[in-house]
Simulated assay, not measured.
Amino acid sequence: MGKIKHMISVLIIGMIMFFFVESKLISGYLEELKNEAQFAHQSGPSLLQQIQQEAKDRYVSPQNAKIDRVWKAIPGYNGLKVDEKKSYQLMKKDGRFQESRLIYKQIPPKVHLKDLPPAPIYRGHSDKAMVSLAINVAWGEEYLPEMLEVLKKHSIHATFFFEGQWVKKHPDLAKMIIDAGHEGGNHSYTHPDMARLSKARAREEMEKTNKVIESATGTRPLLFAPPSGSFTDATVETAHQLGMNTTLWTVDTIDWKKPTPEALINRVISRVHPGAIILMHPTESSSASLDTLVRKLKAKQLKVDTVSNLLSETRIISHTSSSSH
Rank of each mutant, 00 (worst) to 15 (best):
K3F: 08
I8W: 01
S23M: 03
S23K: 01
I26N: 08
I26A: 09
G28S: 15
Y29D: 14
K34H: 14
N35M: 06
N35S: 12
Q38S: 12
Q38L: 14
F39C: 01
A40R: 15
H41I: 11
S46E: 11
Q49K: 06
Q50K: 10
I51Q: 06
Q52D: 02
Q52S: 02
Q53T: 04
Q53N: 11
Q53Y: 14
E54T: 04
R58L: 10
N64C: 03
N64K: 11
A65Y: 02
A65C: 08
A73Q: 02
I74W: 01
I74N: 00
I74G: 00
G76C: 06
L80W: 08
L80G: 04
K81E: 14
K85Y: 15
K86Y: 04
K86N: 13
K93D: 08
G95S: 01
G95T: 05
G95N: 01
R96S: 07
F97S: 00
E99V: 01
R101H: 13
K105A: 02
I107M: 07
P109T: 00
P109Q: 02
H112F: 15
L113H: 12
P118N: 07
P118Y: 11
I121L: 12
A129P: 12
V131D: 12
A134Q: 04
I135Y: 02
G140F: 07
L144S: 05
E146L: 05
K152H: 15
K153P: 06
K153F: 09
H154G: 14
I156T: 14
H157W: 13
T159F: 08
T159H: 03
Q165G: 00
V167D: 08
K169I: 03
L173S: 05
A180N: 06
H182L: 06
N186E: 07
N186M: 03
Y189C: 07
Y189N: 08
P192T: 01
M194S: 09
A195M: 04
A200L: 13
R201E: 15
E205N: 11
T209G: 05
T209F: 00
T209A: 07
T209Y: 11
N210I: 05
A216G: 12
T217W: 03
T219R: 11
L223I: 05
F224R: 02
P226N: 13
P226H: 10
P227K: 05
P227R: 07
S228H: 15
V236L: 01
V236Y: 00
E237K: 13
H240V: 00
H240P: 08
Q241R: 08
L242H: 10
M244K: 00
W249H: 11
I254V: 15
I254Q: 01
T260G: 10
T260N: 03
E262T: 06
A263M: 12
R267A: 10
V272E: 09
G275H: 08
A276P: 12
I278C: 10
P282H: 04
K296G: 03
Q301M: 09
Q301H: 15
V307S: 12
V307R: 10
V307L: 14
S308C: 09
N309F: 03
L310V: 04
L311R: 05
S312Q: 04
I316R: 09
S324T: 13
S324E: 15
H325R: 06
